[in-house]
Amino acid sequence: MNQSDFLKVVIPFKDKVFRLAKRLLVSTEEAEDATQELFFKLWKNKEKLSEYNNVEAFAMTMTKNYCYDRLKSKQASNLTLVHNNYKEKETSLDKKIEQEDSVNQVHKLIENLPEQQKIIIQLRDIEQYDFDEICKMVDMKPTAVRVALSRARKTIREALIKKHNYGVS
């Protein structure tokens, strides 16, 4: 497998990898680094790629695991605070009105979900994978995936209704 063959296989889902990484790592720079790192890893293991019948699912699983590792090492070295600071800086650059934007509200709500629900809602509602693929990617049983997804959707909806009502009254 040469470089152009590899890129042909890999390019179609590079955005999905990037978006999942960003969902978990929050900052764009970190997500970009993670994406680059992941594709480099895939490239190094290119001989093994043909063994997997679904390279995309394999890549998403790798992304999930890689981001978990990054988050863990960050927590271990107490870098979470720095990370939060950075994030706030980024949002403060945006206009204040945009912070109240409905899109941002949903973004923040998803950010507050547990990691597992975050991943599943990302894979289902944004990337639109079917349940079989999601089960493989997160290594969970279908019922567990459905329960997590249902919980995530309900949490977001209820929080939005609450906010909306507060705003009205």
Partner: peptide, 20 residues
Amino acid sequence: MMFGYFKQNKSETYTKTIQL
């Protein structure tokens, strides 16, 4: 709001070139 966000989020792309 939810579906609007999902749709908007999916338009985000990885703009850098992948270096191998």
